[in-house]
Design a protein around this nucleic acid. Structure first.
Lengths: 194, 194
DNA sequence: CGCCATACGTTACGGTTGGTATCGGAATAG
DNA sequence: CTATTCCGATACCAACCGTAACGTATGGCG
């Protein structure tokens, strides 16, 4: 997401980047998406708009990187040996990721940007790529063991889990408690079982 | 959504309301959510901003009513006698509603507004209320007949179907073809079966 | 018929934002 | 020492939102 780095010249102050991301997270938490502005984030970070525009092409890009930094990946634990348990783990991981305060605050606005900024959209999808591949492999194993239908794809299953969770985040995250996760996992597991 | 109507004084020109809604739909289609503006819609409708602000409190309210007019309700056909068929009908109805061009263009932006405009959010939910009640009754019947688990709620099932469809709309409506609807229905049906 | 309330179009305003430009000065590579 | 790029500061433009005037039109009600 960061703009390409030139070789010569005065190097960028690395503290500005982290300060801006942290400022964006803080602003997101106590002003919400609508209260965000480039000038506001810059002031919070102790710098100025031009410095931010040198690093991110627009406010949504900055917010995206602040809310979904590279380190935040969706880590599945698909080694319990029990398909039902693994699916519950997936559902819980998605719920935990999407309902944590900063992503939950950023998501509604970011989703609106995705329709006009394909790069952001692609970037977030890539964040799920690892989990996607792991789940795909897990489903193949389950199909081979006769635990799951052969025509169930990781894409379809993930879309169900992510979509249901996303809708919950948009309409009221308080309903996404552990009992909901368990009900979701139960339905998904039964839904894909052979 | 329309502002309360006074009794005396010059009556509102009813043509402005319909012209504005139609203009909003047209603007939505060929400029997208980000290209919308109150002045643009007013110009397209052959009127002016103050006339629009007399009718809707903000642009999102106008767009919401344009994209999801009162007449557009989610009609389920839950009388096929076969639970599997009924669920497929639900999935198809949701897909058809959310992927039609105007709602698909309006949804990303509207979703972002929902987080700060609870009334819009509540209004859209009410649009699903009828279908929700019908499905609830249908699930009770299925549970009584031993076709469905007793602990499956209409809310959970609808959230899965709507969420998966919504995610598809946000990420690329072209994947939501009839085959996808069938796969979704199959998984949901198996997921809730007793 | 006349009054009053409200609508209408037109125009303009204040405030906010996004994003760019310009400037002198500072830091680094070669 | 020079070229290059960054820095903060400030200014700037265009667009937009929402509101406020105006003078005028149009209806209900007494």
């Amino acid at each position: 997401m960061t703009v390409e780095r030139r070789s010569s010249g005065r190097p960028r102050d690395p503290r500005i980047e982290s300060a801006a991301l942290e400022a964006a997270r803080a602003a997101l938490l106590d002003e919400g998406w609508t209260g965000l502005s480039m000038a506001g984030v810059a002031a919070r970070a102790g710098t100025t708009k031009p410095a931010l525009y040198r690093r991110w092409p627009s406010l949504p890009h900055l917010v995206y990187e602040a809310a979904f930094p590279d380190e935040v990946a969706l880590e599945f634990h698909l080694d319990s040996g029990d398909l039902r348990t693994d699916i519950a783990g997936i559902a819980r991981g998605i719920r935990d990721l999407l309902t944590s305060p900063v992503p939950a605050a950023a998501l509604p606005g970011l989703l609106a940007e995705f329709s006009t900024q394909p790069e952001l959209h692609a970037s977030l999808l890539a964040r799920f790529a690892d989990g996607f591949a792991m789940l795909d492999e897990r489903l193949n194993r389950a199909a081979a063991d006769g635990e799951a239908r052969k025509d169930v794809t990781a894409e379809d299953l993930l879309r169900l889990a992510i979509g249901a969770t996303l809708l919950g985040v948009l309409l009221g995250p308080e309903t996404l408690d552990d009992a909901w996760v368990e009900r979701l996992a139960e339905t998904l597991w039964r839904g894909i079982a052979a």
